[in-house]
Amino acid sequence: MSFSEKKKEKSNHLAFVITIIFSCFLGTYLDLLFVSKKMYTFPMRPFPDIFTVNIIFLFLVLPIFVAFFLQISKTLFAFSRTLFIILIGLCASIFEQFADNLGWFTHSEAWHHSYSLFGYMIFMFLMWRIYSWFQ
């Protein structure tokens, strides 16, 4: 492997790590914001006396999900990546309703699951832009 290939690979790893860390920070901030606005709550969460958000989702599930997203997105062309992001938004909206039924979430009457559809689409697009920018 040449020096420039090693440098590019190191840059890819750094962009990957920065993007995942940023996703944790942004996800935490958004959850704190929406929980404080009483748009939703997390009735089933670890350490409920300390955290108002679900730290397992924010620091385990979300980073793993973003890592898979980045790995798959690297192999896709722009149009396919856009469709993939739309699919993620649809799946997030559906999963959120499923999680509601399981008691993992409780949403206010003002919440519409379309917020998650577009929110996750914007979130994943932003994660891709950050990753691309740091490469």
Rank of each mutant, 00 (worst) to 15 (best):
S2N: 14
F3W: 09
S4W: 10
S4E: 12
E5A: 12
K6R: 13
K10F: 07
N12W: 09
N12Y: 11
N12T: 07
H13P: 00
L14D: 02
F16M: 13
I18N: 03
T19F: 08
T19S: 14
T19C: 07
I21Q: 04
F22C: 11
F25Y: 12
F25E: 04
L26E: 05
L26A: 12
G27I: 10
D31M: 10
D31Q: 03
L32K: 12
F34P: 00
K37G: 02
K37W: 14
K38C: 02
K38T: 07
M39S: 03
M39G: 01
Y40G: 01
T41D: 12
T41E: 14
T41L: 13
P43D: 11
P43T: 08
R45P: 01
P46H: 07
F47V: 01
P48C: 13
D49W: 12
D49Y: 13
I50V: 15
F51R: 08
V53T: 14
N54Y: 13
N54H: 12
I56W: 12
F57Y: 15
L58K: 07
F59Q: 08
L60Q: 07
P63L: 10
I64D: 02
I64V: 14
F65E: 06
F65V: 08
V66Y: 06
A67H: 05
A67Q: 03
F69W: 11
L70C: 05
Q71T: 10
I72H: 01
S73N: 05
S73P: 00
S73H: 07
K74E: 15
T75G: 02
L76I: 00
F77W: 06
F79R: 11
S80L: 09
S80C: 03
S80I: 00
T82D: 10
L83T: 10
L83Q: 08
L83F: 14
L83H: 06
F84D: 02
F84T: 03
I86P: 03
I88D: 09
L90M: 13
C91N: 03
C91M: 14
F95Y: 15
E96L: 04
A99C: 07
N101L: 14
G103C: 06
W104P: 02
A110M: 10
W111A: 13
W111C: 11
H112L: 13
H112V: 08
H113P: 01
S114A: 13
S114C: 08
Y115S: 07
S116H: 06
L117H: 09
L117R: 05
L117K: 04
G119S: 10
M121S: 05
I122L: 15
M124K: 02
F125E: 08
L126P: 01
M127K: 04
I130D: 01
Y131P: 01
S132I: 01
Q135W: 04
